[in-house]
């Protein structure tokens, strides 16, 4: 070190660096890999070399777990913690497809169009989220979007039931059955989303946050109830 400093001082600035000599007897070799601690598979498993099937299954499992959470709305933060928009997308598309019905090819397209359902769901969710943010809620944008999207699940189920009932026939009894199913599922959706979202709101303003959610699911369920295949 002393020799290196001496030569550095003698020459111009930084020129001494080239003169630093490593004595011949030290072999220039060593461990290149970065030393890491005990590697546990839970901590940093690499998803790069796993089969694609595993990746897809893991994501599907996460989506399915959230579906279960919506159907049994406990006070759980799993739906909030790791949000995704796959479930909402699937639910929204399936609901829109079912509502589309046979009116695509018929001239009289009074029924709800695919784009309309899609826009109502996403636009409505965005409006509710912005509203809750404006009222002072402590929830991130996509978390709220995720919860609202997943809570469409009961209504999608109601739509499925309605179509099955409509296959059997359309009369007063069928309408009453559909009415009961849709109202029940509407209540379910609203309660589930309220259970997830209410904690993030200031306690005195819950009613103000719940009203747009109520309106949102009410419009969707009303569309489902009035749906009749052409």
């Amino acid at each position: 070190m002393a020799a290196a400093e001496g030569s550095g001082a003698a020459g111009p600035l930084f020129a001494g660096l080239a003169d630093v000599s490593i004595s011949e007897d030290i072999p220039v070799e060593g461990e290149i890999t970065v030393p890491v601690g005990s590697r546990s598979p839970d901590e940093d498993y690499s998803t790069l070399d796993e089969p694609v099937r595993d990746t897809i299954m893991r994501d599907l499992k996460a989506v399915g777990k959230k579906f279960v959470h919506v159907m049994y709305p406990k006070k759980s933060s799993a739906l909030l913690r790791d949000w995704d928009l796959w479930g909402p997308l699937v639910l929204c598309v399936s609901l829109a497809l079912m509502l589309q019905g046979g009116s695509a090819d018929s001239k009289d397209d009074g029924g709800p169009q695919f784009a309309e359902v899609f826009v109502i769901i996403w636009f409505g969710a965005v409006v509710i989220t912005l509203n809750s943010k404006l009222l002072g809620g402590t929830i991130s944008f996509f978390q709220s979007l995720c919860v609202l999207g997943y809570c469409v699940l009961p209504l999608t189920v109601a739509m499925l039931v309605c179509r099955l009932v409509l296959l059997a026939g359309s009369g007063t009894i069928s309408f009453i059955i559909r009415l009961i199913v849709v109202v029940a599922m509407f209540g379910w959706s609203t309660l589930a989303s309220t259970a997830f979202l209410a904690d993030s709101q200031p306690p005195n303003r819950k009613a103000l946050v719940v009203y747009p959610i109520f309106l949102f699911y009410f419009v969707i369920s009303w569309m489902i109830l009035t749906f009749t295949p052409q």
């Binding site: 404006l134 002072g136 005195n204 303003r205 009613a207 103000l208």
Partner: peptide
């Protein structure tokens, strides 16, 4: 900055 709009949403259910 959504905070600009926040004063206009500062209400209680009773007030509404």
């Amino acid at each position: 900055n959504i905070d600009i709009l926040r004063p206009y949403f500062d209400v209680e259910p009773v007030q509404v």
